[in-house]
Computed example of a mutant assay.
Amino acid sequence: MRKVLLTSVVALALAAGAGVYIRAAAHRNDAAAAASEEVDIGPGPRLLVRSTAKESFGHLAVVDAADPKGARKVSAVSCNRVYAAAGTAICLRPDGPLATYQIAVLGRHLEERDSYPMVGVPNRARVSDDGRLVTWTAFVTGDSYNNGQFSTRIGVLDTSTGDMVVDTLEDFALSRDGRPYQSADVNYWGVTLAHGDRTFYATVSTAGHRYLVQGDFDRRTVRTLAENVECPSLSPDGTRIAFKQAVDGDPVKGWRPAVLDLATLRPTVLAETRSVDDQIAWLDDRTVMYALHRDADRSDVWSLPADGSGAPALLVPDAESPAYLH
């Protein structure tokens, strides 16, 4: 399926998205005044983040992994959500004044390689470890995971060809608890991509339950693995899934970060008592990182041991949407 299918889509002007756009526009003058530098997102001991500092709000920045609270290089490029790997970044950003959005594929120096219109309000983004596939989730109705009144849309793009690998997971064959399953209320979000670009993990919701699913792009199949797993993120060694777990199975009560061992399907709840509504990222095989909001606009990135020990530590102040540049 060629990219022309993407370019024929008209993005929806949602009220929730309009609020995001207006808040971003309110910071535009401050951000334009910020000193911009050439930013390199090639592999190295650095973190790419979206800045939430007043003087560079929304702009992409890189910090040294050895000193993430220190000086940052700020780019002229701005996004609502970002992720990067192997010198490729996906940037979800506004595309005009009416709360329409686009997907931009960026290169090693954040130069635009291609862009596409997207349906809905940007929410999650990931890049495969080889930089070939990019994936995103957008809200097409609603703007929150915690009330059950929402619908999402997933896309997966092959950046080497411009082809859509997936423009919806709803036509994949789903097995729930080992049996074929179909329902009108099936809804997917939060894709994470495995090594080799064939296998993926995501969240599926149906009948009031939320599951981790493992999928196969070639076979166009997905199967449930575990319940109460949202927004999965595969560890660098491919053995574990970091995720947010609804408290008592109820998203209204908030979420706690956790890690699932894929061999045993045994979860470990991590040492964070605040609600984490993010697609948790991996800093390394032993440490996860995630954003927590201080108010409507300002966020910080925190880190936490992935084995359930320790305590949360402030990693990057005034930042969100982190990616370790590997």
Score class of each variant (00 low, 15 high):
Tyr83Cys: 11
Ala86Lys: 10
Ala86Glu: 12
Gly87Glu: 12
Gly87Val: 06
Gly87Pro: 06
Ala89Gln: 07
Pro94Tyr: 04
Asp95Glu: 07
Pro97Lys: 01
Leu98Gln: 02
Leu98Ser: 05
Ala99Phe: 06
Thr100Lys: 09
Tyr101Ala: 00
Tyr101Cys: 01
Tyr101Met: 00
Gln102Thr: 10
Gln102Trp: 00
Gln102Glu: 11
Ile103Ala: 00
Val105Ser: 10
Leu106Ser: 04
Gly107Cys: 10
Gly107Glu: 09
His109Thr: 11
His109Asp: 12
Leu110Phe: 11
Leu110Tyr: 08
Arg113Leu: 15
Asp114Cys: 06
Asp114Ser: 15
Pro117Trp: 04
Met118Pro: 10
Val119Ala: 07
Val119Gly: 13
Val119Ile: 07
Gly120His: 12
Gly120Pro: 12
Val121Gly: 14
Pro122Asp: 06
Arg124Gln: 07
Arg124Asn: 11
Arg126Glu: 02
Arg126Ser: 02
Val127Ala: 04
Ser128Phe: 00
Asp129Tyr: 01
Asp130Glu: 04
Arg132Phe: 02
Arg132Lys: 04
Leu133Pro: 03
Val134Lys: 01
Thr135Phe: 01
Thr135Met: 02
Ala138Trp: 00
Ala138Thr: 07
Val140Thr: 13
Ser144Val: 05
Tyr145Trp: 09
Asn146Cys: 05
Asn147His: 13
Gly148Met: 05
Phe150Lys: 05
Ser151Asn: 14
Thr152Gln: 05
Arg153Cys: 08
Arg153Lys: 14
Ile154Met: 15
Gly155Val: 14
Asp158Ile: 00
Asp158Asn: 13
Ser160Leu: 15
Ser160Pro: 14
Thr161Leu: 12
Gly162Leu: 09
Met164Thr: 12
Val165Gly: 08
Val165Ile: 13
Val166Ala: 15
Asp167Thr: 08
Asp167Leu: 10
Thr168Ile: 14
Phe172Ala: 05
Phe172Glu: 02
Phe172Trp: 07
